[in-house]
Design a protein around this nucleic acid. Sequence first.
DNA 1: TGTGAAATCGATCCTTA
DNA 2: TAAGGATCGATTTCACA
Lengths: 159, 159
Amino acid sequence: MAADYRLDRIDRRILKILQAEGRLTNQALASRVALSPSACLARVRHLERIGVIQGYHARLDPFRLDIGLVLFVEVILEGHSPEEQARFEAAIEAMPEVVEASHVSGDVDYLLKIVVANMMEWTRLREKFIGGDLGVDRITTHALMRKPKIFKGYPISDP
Amino acid sequence: MAADYRLDRIDRRILKILQAEGRLTNQALASRVALSPSACLARVRHLERIGVIQGYHARLDPFRLDIGLVLFVEVILEGHSPEEQARFEAAIEAMPEVVEASHVSGDVDYLLKIVVANMMEWTRLREKFIGGDLGVDRITTHALMRKPKIFKGYPISDP
DNA sequence: TGTGAAATCGATCCTTA
DNA sequence: TAAGGATCGATTTCACA
């Protein structure tokens, strides 16, 4: 999947723009990076094919969706062998409530983003973590109240 | 901004689809929700106008961007008055390295997502947090190593 | 890799229901 | 609110540099 492809200046400008304005037309994008539409489209398709662009998404306001609760959960495993990690990761892969998982260094092993309809659902899901045989030692929960700064993409330097 | 507008079944289907496929053409979207293109476009524009759709973004692979380090930082403030929170939030608003901030309930006050080029940069930025007059009591840092589950949007029920 | 032209397809607006 | 049709603009392919 061309994991070693080197992004040039124009690629980076394309990525920066599409990260901020995902529905920009190819023509507008082309003129902003000073390419013909066909050359620009070829680059975008290439970036998609090699996996630098992983998808396009509408960003929705979670507080307008009757989504329930958004929780950030820190997980510490009992053991840290590859097998134990794989078992845990397979378990969360199968939980639709877990919408994002990050494996991190430090005193904590995983940071999860979890969406549940209400506290009761969280109480039930919580038991799967601590009671179950997922090899979890301890979890800490934080409930989202407000988003003072919203993620709109990674910083990409122009040059 | 029509914060009380009630989403109907078709709105929710539109949101679910655009959240997963942000660059879908209006025609394709229209046929998937069984509307004419013009009616579908009017709904999408409406959802954008009232702020349920906040933007469109290409999702990029952070490990392919030479971005440096992605850090998750937990922040505990010394005090919890509205003024102290506002001061802290204004400070992180002005830091481009802080790409996302969540105000959460529990023993921690804020969860930050921070992107820095390298450890040295983080060491410098860290001092702004603990040394500065931001009213920060304590921070805990986790560095992203791997993403076993990637966020692709909130769960939206069909009916 | 890039350009420009040609053909197809999509977005958008307006009218009518 | 929705549909249909007209118009204008965008996407995509291809021959060529």
